[in-house]
Design a protein around this nucleic acid. Structure first.
Lengths: 223, 223
DNA sequence: GTATTTTTTAATGTATGCATTAATTTGCGG
DNA sequence: CCGCAAATTAATGCATACATTAAAAAATAC
């Protein structure tokens, strides 16, 4: 574990800081000095600075001269903006995926994710459901075959990760959700781009409403 | 000019390298060692490295260990991907802008850009036309009031900047284009989100087709 | 007690040095 | 001559040092 880590220090810093942010170990809104972080990660400031710049570009932190690296909190407005972007880009991906002429075989990751969600739901395992849901969305985007969409969607997902995991257990049980997933898969398999886009857009819009409603209901101004 | 530049070296490096990339002084596909760039910019490697990371996150260069900083070329596939993203996000912006209830006054930057395009066209000044066109699109996105969309659209525009300026003079005279702009403006002023989205989407899709057609016609595989 | 200026502190921005290691060149056997 | 191994080169990754300067604290004036 110590000797076989071939990653550069900068890379390690990026990976570890990301995880710490996702786990909430670096609190949203709090600031950390380069020196502290370097100390924590057991390396010098140089790779930490480079990691901070990278994370800033990914929209996870803000580097403020002399005030340290600040973990960006996510407001309801941010959530709204991000889900709007995801809705557009994933709908595009669904449309494009339906145009690729994929065979059943190409769609099996998607199908498996749907099955996993069903299973997780029947076992009331929200965490597993959420993981499978992410897998579905990520694979859908991948099938759309647009590198920019892939990386932007990944960035947006990262930005809402904390907020999603916090609200996961407040959500109404996502029973209906999987029907949408099946319909999207069906439209893609049938090579129907218009339908794929339309269904997925509605699905995403619904998720957005649920999420934003929760933030409102529980007065979550900052995540 | 020397004493009043308050920007940090890293910031200067980012700005100057960006400009050099846009102007083609750093050729697409070519690589440059950190040392060379530092030499060129008259600073040490540290800020150059940081700038390179930033530019990498913006999708303008690729940092390859021991092979230097490579200016990313843009392929027809890239153009296609990027225009798809811009089409989606700007259409969203147009829709949202139409929902904001903007008064004539709020839309005057948009209106001015349209007038500038007309003027530029009548004077056959393509460069001025292009600048005004960019202004129109940037302002449209701004009016959509979504920070993520703003920054993503700016990134995508940067990535195609070189390619656009190269193909500018190969394009058919963009005479009809401004009617679309006026219609979008009209739909926003009228508070008609559906219409605004629809028109803008068609407008963008048309631009996309023209651009991709040009790349095909002139066999531009790499820009 | 509050506002203003001065002093102090400390975090950053940048340069530099050096070990590491990928890439290149050289040398050697076939 | 060609393929492969050893030696060399050089670009990077990282640590470190230090000047700069914003922020904080202290001192002073009001």
């Amino acid at each position: 574990m110590t000797s076989t880590d071939t990653r550069s220090s900068t890379r390690r810093a990026v990976d570890e800081l990301r995880e710490m942010i996702f786990r909430g170990e670096l609190g949203p809104g709090s600031s950390y000095l380069e020196t502290e972080l370097a100390e924590t990660l057991g390396m010098s400031r140089t790779p930490v600075r480079e990691a901070a710049l990278t994370l800033e570009a990914q929209g996870l932190v803000e580097v403020r001269p002399r005030r340290g690296v600040r973990v960006l909190p996510v407001s309801p407005q941010d959530m709204s903006d991000i889900y709007d972007v995801l809705t557009e880009l994933e709908s595009l991906a669904a449309e494009k995926a339906a145009q690729q002429g994929y065979a059943r075989h190409d769609l099996r990751v998607l199908a498996n994710a749907i099955d996993d969600m069903d299973r997780a739901l029947s076992e009331k395992d929200l965490k597993a459901w959420s993981a499978a849901d992410d897998r579905f969305h990520r694979e859908l985007v991948r099938l759309g075959r647009n590198k920019r969409v892939e990386s932007i969607a990944a960035m947006m997902e990262d930005q809402v990760r904390r907020a999603k995991s916090i609200t996961l257990h407040m959500r109404p049980f996502p029973a209906r959700s999987n029907q949408d997933h099946r319909d999207v898969l069906g439209a893609i398999a049938a090579g129907n781009p218009v339908q794929a886009r339309k269904i997925h857009r509605l699905h995403r819009a619904a998720t957005r409403e649920v999420l934003l409603g929760l933030l409102e209901k529980f007065r979550l101004r900052q995540l």
